[in-house]
């Protein structure tokens, strides 16, 4: 009876439907062939079903990414909803893969699906985690670099939610700048 009752409870709908993408670097294939849409979800319950089913980010091999984007937005600069935007970038040391990476990524996911950025949540496109030997990265993507108020609000809330020290500084980079330079050289448009 308990099982039946549980099944009858309505799931909790999210504001947006989200898509999980997985990227695995296979050098012999073009970049886009290495990027796969895993699935989409639009309830709290389905999010957790997915989260507990897939590998933790820290267990992925180097060169892999997870991306979570609003359904219909592809996790690439070229998408029309991304191309004028940018990203709040969190760069991690090698040691942090084992201490902080999974916690920071889960917190990022909860910010997205919970619409943590108030009226500016509509500016959010998605988030990406890159697993790399030289240091992992997490980025929160927004759609319009010029929306300074929204971008900085999102950055301040995001930094607080990640529990970063007030002395730590995170930067926001325009995709248009990242696309033309290596990310380590891209200048920050905003910092919080």
């Amino acid at each position: 009876d308990v099982v039946i009752a549980t099944e009858n409870v309505e799931k909790h709908p999210l504001q947006s439907r989200w898509a999980l993408w997985f990227f695995k670097n296979v050098r012999s294939q073009p970049w886009q062939c290495n990027l796969r849409l895993v699935t989409t979800f639009n309830t709290v319950e389905d999010f957790w079903a997915l989260y507990t089913h897939v590998q933790l980010a820290s267990k992925l091999s180097s060169g892999c990414d997870y991306s979570i984007f609003k359904d219909g937005i592809e996790p690439m600069w070229e998408d029309s909803r991304n191309k004028r935007g940018g990203r709040w970038l969190i760069t991690l040391s090698k040691q942090q893969r084992h201490s902080d990476l999974d916690t920071l990524w889960l917190e990022t996911l909860l910010c997205l699906i919970g619409e943590a950025f108030d009226e500016h949540s509509e500016e959010v496109c998605g988030a990406v985690i890159n697993i790399r030997a030289k240091g992992d990265k997490i980025a929160l993507w927004t759609r319009e670099t010029e929306n300074r108020e929204a971008v900085t609000h999102i950055g301040r809330v995001y930094k607080e939610r990640l529990g970063l020290s007030s002395k730590a500084v995170i930067g926001y980079q325009a995709h248009a700048d990242t696309a033309t330079k290596s990310s380590s050289l891209t200048k920050n448009k905003f910092v919080v």
Binding site: T6, H12, Q15, W48, Y51, L110, G114, A116
Partner: peptide, 20 residues
């Protein structure tokens, strides 16, 4: 209105049997 969920609410669903 917008469906906003705070982190504690969302985390409360993490280990629910229906999610496994």
């Amino acid at each position: 209105g917008k469906r906003q969920y705070d982190r504690d609410f969302l985390l409360g669903f993490q280990f629910m049997p229906a999610c496994v």
